[in-house]
């Protein structure tokens, strides 16, 4: 898998001394294939290494299956299949599962790799209209942190409502 586009900023110092007067929102960035995505960090309850996931026959293709996290049943979704950038679910050594709280259950989001936390200023977030074309409910905007990466910011609620 080509991960060349995943930019791991070496210069964390630049972020650290960032101007505290500005409102910053924290995002967790991760890879789906070769693209970098991010969600607000507050929506993530936990990051897990993959546990055995049992496939659920007849479920939507984006459902990887169910797993048990300390006795709690978690439905795992494959965002790549949800976004139609992959046809099969692949779990690698770098894969992680982000646990998020949906209204009535806990959902696990399967991602290929967790990158880092970005603290974005309002100026670093472009509205979803910046992408042009058809507006997707789950796209919250585009993040352009100072290290030059481009993050597709996700809005998770519409994904649960399906």
């Amino acid at each position: 898998m080509n991960r060349a586009m995943a930019r791991r900023p070496e210069a964390r110092g630049a972020l650290q001394r960032a101007d505290d007067l500005e409102t910053r929102t924290e995002y967790l960035a991760f890879l789906l294939g070769s693209e970098a995505y991010a969600v607000q960090i507050g929506s993530i309850a936990e990051i897990l290494k993959p546990l055995p996931i049992t496939e659920v026959p007849r479920a939507r293709p984006s459902v990887v299956g169910v797993m048990s996290v300390r006795g709690r049943l978690v439905t795992v979704l494959d965002l790549k299949r949800r976004f139609r950038v992959a046809d099969t679910t692949e779990i690698e050594r770098t894969s992680r599962i982000l646990l998020v709280d949906a209204p009535d259950e806990t959902i696990g989001l399967l991602v290929d790799e967790v990158l880092q936390v970005y603290r974005l200023t309002e100026a670093e977030v472009e509205p979803p209209t910046a992408l042009g074309g058809e507006q997707l409910a789950y796209v919250a905007g585009v993040g352009r942190p100072s290290d030059g990466s481009v993050l597709l910011l996700l809005n998770l609620q519409p994904l649960f409502a399906e």
Binding site: V56, V63, G65, T75, P103
Partner: peptide, 25 residues
């Protein structure tokens, strides 16, 4: 019980842990 996101799936009453961290439907 299976979560709401699997409410559309027919034929399963729920799931259980089988040991070894594995889940059985």
């Amino acid at each position: 019980a299976l979560g709401d996101s699997l409410a559309h799936v027919r034929g399963f009453a729920g799931a259980t842990e089988l040991g070894d961290q594995r889940v059985g439907l």
